[in-house]
Simulated assay, not measured.
Amino acid sequence: MPSLQSLRRKIAAFKNTQKITKAMKMVAAAKLKRSQDRILCARPYAHKMRRVLSNLSRRVNRSSHPLLQKREGIKVEVLVVTSDRGLCGGFNGNIVRKSSEFVRQCESRGLQVNLSIIGRKGRDYFRRRSWRIRQEWTGIFDKLSFEHAIDIGADLTDNFAKGSFDELYVVYNEFKSAIQQRVIVEKLFPVDAQVEFGSAQMEGTTGGSYLYEPEEAELLDALVPKHFQVQAYRILLESAAAEHGARMAAMDGATRNAGQLIKKVTLYYNKTRQAAITKELMDIVGGAEALK
């Protein structure tokens, strides 16, 4: 039977843990509000820009711009977006499981797969595996800005243009609500109009062309890299908001669990203390009876 002192220490430790998890929940809730506002503002612009570029890619000569070219290659790159910190429930676990499954599917089709990692948790996981990591970015979610998306977009577009890979897929958590995220596998390179509009609408397209001002090549040179920067920024915002939501939910559950443990151990402490008092009383009564 544990001593009363050890039980008191255990109760104090549970209470301290509960204070920490409650504070982390409040911090995550405050960060979630800011991240949610940012993604709700950025998401419509990013979706509309993707739709515009997908529509444009149907009507231009795709070979006129290196970022629109479709290649029949076997080199695939997977961009995995995780968090830099833990204590956010199954946020990172769902990402690495989905990424590993997708990579194995690609390898089973005879494709060569390289990884680019955003976030320390994904980097640490895949470093212990046999898959090759081409590039990694860590520590960007503390002060997330559009400059991070510019750096990531420039690296990806340059390597795609140089032929380092023929297709790029990104695996990330899409923010749905404070308690719900969805793991998404999305194709970024090259732009696929059929994915955006669907095969039925593609078959019904009558063709046609645009009048460009400035010239088509100049417009594509400005619009296409900007599109990938915007999509990278949207993905980072989605992941940041989903991470804060997952952490808030995880810390809320941890706070409730700590409260239940405090009640359980406190009840056991009271029973143990009462048993000790009863034993002492019985010893006193027994001693008094022996003196008679």
Rank of each mutant, 00 (worst) to 15 (best):
A250D: 08
I284L: 09
K292V: 08
V185E: 12
A12P: 07
E216I: 14
A290R: 15
T17Q: 10
D155P: 01
Y45C: 05
Q229M: 12
N159Q: 15
D252H: 13
K19Y: 03
I235Q: 00
T278A: 14
K15S: 02
T138Q: 13
I11S: 11
T138H: 13
M24K: 15
R234S: 03
M49E: 11
E174Q: 12
I118M: 05
Y172W: 05
K226G: 06
Y269R: 03
M49Y: 05
G163F: 04
I150V: 11
I117A: 07
G286C: 07
A276M: 10
M1K: 10
N55M: 15
V224I: 15
D166V: 07
T205Y: 15
V185I: 15
N257L: 09
I184F: 04
F91A: 00
V27I: 12
I277H: 08
R247D: 01
N173S: 12
I150T: 08
F165P: 07
Y172K: 00
E215M: 08
V185T: 03
K176F: 06
V60W: 11
Y125I: 02
I140H: 00
V60P: 05
S3G: 14
I152C: 01
A242V: 00
Q5E: 11
L291M: 04
N159S: 12
Y172E: 02
E167W: 05
T21P: 02
V171T: 01
K22H: 07
R256F: 10
G89V: 05
D151R: 13
V265N: 03
S145W: 06
V183Q: 07
L40D: 04
A288Y: 09
A12S: 15
R85P: 06
K162A: 15
F146Q: 09
V195M: 11
V195N: 10
E147W: 07
V103G: 04
K22T: 10
L156N: 00
G245V: 02
V76R: 03
A29V: 11
I184Q: 07
G139F: 11
G198R: 05
P66V: 13
A200H: 14
R134P: 01
Q180K: 10
G198Q: 09
R62Q: 14
M1Y: 08
D192P: 01
D37E: 14
G207P: 02
R34I: 09
S209H: 10
Y169R: 03
E216F: 03
H47G: 08
T82N: 01
R134C: 05
E218S: 15
E101G: 10
R182Q: 14
L32R: 06
R120A: 11
Q105D: 09
Q274M: 15
I235S: 02
E203K: 14
A178M: 13
S116F: 02
L32S: 04
W137Y: 07
Q69D: 01
E77R: 15
L267M: 09
D151F: 06
